[in-house]
């Protein structure tokens, strides 16, 4: 499992590198090489590391370990076909991790990044509505059961298309340089991660790589089903490129607009889940 964990982290970082490259090419810039995020993680591992004098020391360091720990757990659950609720619970707890990253340093930039992270929690609610829709169709929230259900009834991408759209929106909200990336907007320097340098930043990069792999792989498993490994890799690259196109051509929204649009999607998803519920009940 350790080898798979390392490969998943490196692949996630590679996907983030592809994301940056695609955005740059659409905007007619050369952009960094696709392995730049892997180099970043390696580079930060050997940089000078310190804890700011104003920081809450234990929290500042501990939260990096928590970030890596929760996504390692999510990866393990995904690989063993465990409960979908655990993966999405961890996804939501990532908000708390961002909040703690931001507040622990004492920096005003980090603080506002963390506060934005909490107020944009609206982006997570469509996720749970899409989970509810999946549960209504498949009668289970265990990943292995959902995969087995799709082998009999066909992919949920077709059967529960609005739920797939909602989860795609959730993926978009977690991609850097996207319309909903208000937690690391440039007016906040790097937002919640501004003060985490050196080894702490390398840990954050590892967490981001793992998170990207877990979320994209979960999306494919949930809405397409079990695929051979190479098709999984190709599928994840295709989703990343499509997200990059959206990020490249969409300006970053203001915090108010970002939360409003996500709340509107939540409303639409609630209506969809209600229709599915009534259909199933009938």
């Amino acid at each position: 499992m350790i080898a798979e964990l390392v490969l998943a982290t490196l692949f996630g970082l590679l996907l983030l590198g592809i994301h940056r490259k695609v955005i740059a090419r659409i905007q007619r810039r050369p952009g960094p090489p696709v392995w730049q995020e892997i180099l970043h993680a390696a580079k930060f591992s050997f940089k000078t590391t310190w804890v700011p004098a104003t920081a809450s020391r234990a929290l500042f360091i501990g939260i990096v370990l928590v970030a890596i720990g929760i996504w390692t757990a999510a990866f393990f659950v995904m690989m063993t076909g465990g409960s979908l609720l655990v993966i999405f619970g961890i996804y939501m707890l990532h908000k708390i991790v961002e909040h703690a990253f931001g507040l622990s340093s004492g920096s005003p930039y980090g603080k506002f990044g963390g506060v934005r992270s909490v107020i944009s929690a609206a982006s997570e609610i469509p996720l749970f509505v899409s989970v509810a829709a999946i549960a209504l169709f498949t009668r289970s929230l265990t990943l292995s059961d959902i995969i087995a259900w799709q082998q009999v009834h066909g992919p949920l991408l077709i059967i529960a298309f609005p739920a797939a759209i909602a989860m795609y929106l959730v993926l978009l909200s977690k991609m850097p340089f996207g319309p909903f990336s208000i937690v690391e907007a440039k007016e906040l320097v790097s937002g919640y991660k501004t003060e985490h340098f050196g080894v702490w930043r390398a840990g954050l990069e590892v967490c981001n790589g793992l998170k990207t792999t877990v979320l994209l792989a979960t999306f494919l498993l949930l809405f397409v089903g079990q695929l051979p490994i190479w098709w999984m890799v190709i599928g994840m690259v295709i989703i990343t490129v499509s997200l990059s196109f959206t990020c490249a051509i969409t300006p970053m929204l203001s915090p108010f607009d970002s939360v409003t649009i996500q709340s509107l999607f939540t409303g639409l998803m609630l209506v969809y889940a209600g229709i599915v519920f009534l259909g199933v009940a009938a």
Partner: peptide
């Protein structure tokens, strides 16, 4: 997770927030 954060609360001292 609740346990880990409770331990962090016990071990941590508050940060000194910087205001510009």
């Amino acid at each position: 997770l609740a346990l880990v954060f409770t331990v962090l609360v016990i071990l941590s001292r508050p940060e000194r927030q910087v205001d510009i």
